[in-house]
Simulated scan of single mutants.
Amino acid sequence: MSGIVNLRVERVERVEGAGQAPASVGESPVWRAAEQALYWVDIPAQKIVRLRVDSGERAEWRLPEKVACIAFDRRGTVLAGCETGLFAFTLPDAAQASSGEPGRAAVRKLAAPVFEADDMRFNDGRCDRQGRFWAGTMVQDMAAAKPAGALYRFDEHGVLSAPVVDALITQNGLGWSPDGTTMYLSDSHPSRRLIWAFDYDIDSGQPRNRRVFADLHHYAGRPDGAAVDADGCYWICANDAGLLLRFTPQGKLDRQLAVPPTKPSMCAFGGRNLDTLFVTSIRPATGASEHDGHLFAVRPSVTGLPEPEFAGEL
């Protein structure tokens, strides 16, 4: 793969084409098959970044506020969860953005929840198998440990739901089983460290029967962003532990893979055959290693599923 340098850790590679400067909070990797490109965000830098993996061409766009999670509609418009709400972003001027000068995205606000506390933003989000966009909120000061976060559904008609799941501290880990009938959600706050599974009604978009899927108090790290593979297994980034953990649909840990950054933040399957697991990471304020904040590629000998697009028109 062009632009990737092998590391001493077998089967894990740092994606040098992603750029030499580390992200403060790299998050929300999304593989867009139509472009054969990986997109991701740097939350505090207010940036969306794109890498065409085969050519190594990199582009970035500056946004007017922090952006935490993204998805695409069929036309390539970005649906994003940010600080003050959900936005549609059109990413023009790719040539300028590829030249090292960040492009400017055209912005349109779509919806906003009533935040339960001050200093909140959206966090983890993605589309379900039917193309509804789901995203959760959190208080930005994690040390406050306020359970003011909630999970919302934004449907194809442009309607933002009331809170579907509430009392979350640090919402994370959204994912769906291959048939869409199981939804996964986590709370990555150190005091929670739980992953839940729900029965999911694919017609109504309503999750029910919430139960603990995995309690990471029994494992290393905190549950951050996730991906589901074609076998229905759930991959979670174990933040603070430098690990990827794979749980079977029955909630059994069956694989553990070390990655160079201490704080892997989210993973997503990509590549032409969806056989590469891309991993973003966070760079801690103190004690950072040379790998923290960079993008990595893992070849776990399993394949992923295409990332669903938003079913509505943005």
Rank of each mutant, 00 (worst) to 15 (best):
E16L: 01
T181M: 13
N209G: 10
E13V: 03
D128C: 12
G221N: 10
A94E: 08
P147L: 09
M266D: 07
C82W: 06
Q140T: 11
E83V: 09
E13M: 05
Y152V: 09
A238P: 02
G312V: 12
G56T: 01
T90W: 11
R58N: 05
L110N: 06
S265R: 10
A150I: 04
N123S: 03
L168Q: 05
A297V: 04
L79T: 07
D42Q: 14
R104H: 12
F154V: 01
A143G: 15
V279N: 02
L245I: 12
P178Q: 13
V15W: 00
L160P: 05
R8V: 09
R210W: 11
I169D: 01
S98I: 02
L174T: 03
W134Q: 00
A258I: 12
R208P: 04
M138L: 13
A241G: 11
T90F: 14
A18Y: 01
F115N: 01
S24D: 14
G205N: 08
R211L: 10
R74T: 11
L216W: 07
E65N: 11
Q130C: 11
A144P: 09
N239D: 10
R14N: 00
G270R: 10
S281C: 07
P223V: 04
Y200E: 08
I70K: 10
V9G: 01
E57K: 07
Q20G: 15
E60I: 03
Q140C: 14
Y184A: 10
T181G: 11
I202V: 15
E10I: 00
A162P: 02
V259F: 00
A144R: 14
E309R: 09
S188E: 00
D275A: 12
Q171Y: 09
L151K: 01
F133Q: 08
E35N: 09
P147S: 06
F133K: 07
D203S: 10
A45L: 11
G225H: 00
I236V: 15
Q140Y: 06
D141M: 13
S24C: 14
R104I: 14
P147W: 08
F269G: 00
A106G: 06
N6P: 13
A167E: 12
R32C: 11
D128T: 12
L91F: 07
A21P: 03
F115H: 06
A112Q: 14
A95H: 14
T286A: 11
L194D: 08
V165P: 01
F310I: 03
G251Y: 03
P44A: 05
A135C: 15
S99Y: 12
F213E: 05
D128L: 14
I43E: 00
M142G: 10
G304M: 03
Q46L: 15
E313I: 08
K66S: 12
P249C: 09
A226E: 04
R75A: 15
G287I: 08
I195W: 09
V259Y: 00
P284F: 14
V9R: 05
A18F: 00
G221F: 04
R74N: 15
D229A: 10
Y200K: 03
L151N: 01
E35P: 03
Q250W: 06
Y39E: 07
A111F: 05
T170V: 15
P44V: 07
G85C: 12
V212H: 15
S186V: 05
R8Q: 09
L174S: 06
L314A: 13
W31Q: 01
V298F: 05
R255F: 04
